[in-house]
Design a protein around this nucleic acid. Structure first.
Lengths: 229, 229
DNA sequence: TTTTATTTGTGTTGAAATAACACTAAATAA
DNA sequence: TTATTTAGTGTTATTTCAACACAAATAAAA
């Protein structure tokens, strides 16, 4: 029976992040053009290596911060990928995370520095290694998430219209939703505050702006629920 | 920018398995009494270390085989745990898996050798390290699984009664179900074959035995579905 | 000033799914 | 023969879900 720690093999542990954003039309992911070998010049998820005295979540946070400049990013562990040759350089196990951020207020400069770019998930280029598989997983998890947790706070601007929220759900679920049914389902969650203010940019009539009721939102984040759209 | 593989830290990667079984009454887990330090004599999930040239799934399979004697065990990766001091001996990241097996036909001898024992999930002892947390995760994942995949083939004997199947669902979901509603929902899945044979042991009247229609079952395993009980 | 075009905002209704509910049938044991 | 136990089986009310259309507000164009 193997009971000796010292005889066990050690491996490299990477963390790769699928960063989702939303531009009022499409669901997007942030990719970088790798500037080192192997696969230099190819598109890749952002990632890095786990440090010796670092918890995985902290590692993901550090990596996310490095590429976006953000602290406090919503993020969840996804799955751990371990195919032998997934990384041709050296055996590397990768723990994938996905994150949700607001496209609008992230750091342009950082994006430039890192040769990063937002892609619609439908128009994303082929990615290196097994990153395409990770992305698929992430999308599927994000879809599931819509049925058990509120979503939007992390992806939308502070104030947003009902239409924007609906577009977000449509982008994630990749299907069209009925406006009236959507509104009544969302309202039944009781997490929105209707403001006395209209957005006049997107229509002649103008549409009311909403914000999330942060307390109620976070309470739902903790305690799941069911939402069938 | 960190782009050097060689400068990254390597860590120990463990695999821990939550093995679920079912005894017609309770949902059970297989635990072992550790026979080495640290925490010698305490109850623990079965586990081991990932080998250098091994994929995580294979590692879990190997470990499951060692303790149960089974090949072809149904198994899914759960989550990766990485708290710094989760293992007091050395920094160890652990990838948790859960598995479903049939309590009846597993290897008694192996259980003896390893000081293993089945516990009802309600009566499980405190476990070492963060294994309790892993167990919680696993139960929650198993519950979710009932709503998207068929379940039972892995946990029940070849032939079983409707009541047994219901008891299994009740044990997993930890709630009582209405017999008539349960039967009609299960039947609508169209994965059972009613046999021309009765089990006379558990009642005077005797109850029909069923088996899974393996093909249909596996088709549903691949393609999810929705089952609300 | 009037007309046109565009997007918002709002309820009802039929269909489907779900949850609640109770009695008879079969067999063995007393 | 009677009593006991568990199996087997449908209906109904409630709830949820999906489909559906038109008027109101405004800005732009005529």
């Amino acid at each position: 029976m193997l009971n000796s720690y010292t005889s066990a093999d050690k491996v490299l542990l990477a963390v790769d992040c699928i960063i989702f954003g939303f531009d009022n039309e499409d669901l997007k992911i942030l990719l970088i053009k790798r500037d080192f070998e192997p696969e230099k010049g190819k598109w890749s998820l952002i990632g890095g290596f786990l440090k010796k005295d670092e918890v995985l979540n902290d590692s993901a946070t550090r990596i996310l911060n490095r590429y976006t400049g953000f602290h406090d990013i919503y993020m969840e562990q996804l799955y751990t990928f371990s195919e032998i040759d997934r990384d041709p350089v050296e055996r590397t196990i990768s723990v994938a995370y996905y994150a949700l951020i607001n496209v609008e207020n992230h750091n342009e400069e950082l994006i430039q520095n890192y040769n990063a770019k937002w892609f619609s998930i439908n128009e994303a280029p082929k990615l290196i290694f097994d990153h395409d598989k990770m992305l698929k997983h992430a999308i599927s998890r994000l879809r599931y998430r819509t049925s058990t947790k509120p979503i939007g706070f992390e992806l939308l601007p502070e104030k947003f219209t009902m239409r924007q929220l609906q577009k977000l759900y449509e982008a994630i679920l990749s299907k069209e939703l009925d406006k009236r049914n959507f509104i009544s389902k969302i309202n039944s969650l009781d997490i929105l505050i209707k403001l006395d203010e209209k957005d006049m940019l997107s229509s002649r009539k103008g549409s009311y702006l909403y914000t999330f009721d942060k307390e109620k939102y976070e309470e739902k984040l903790m305690n799941d629920f069911v939402l069938n759209l």
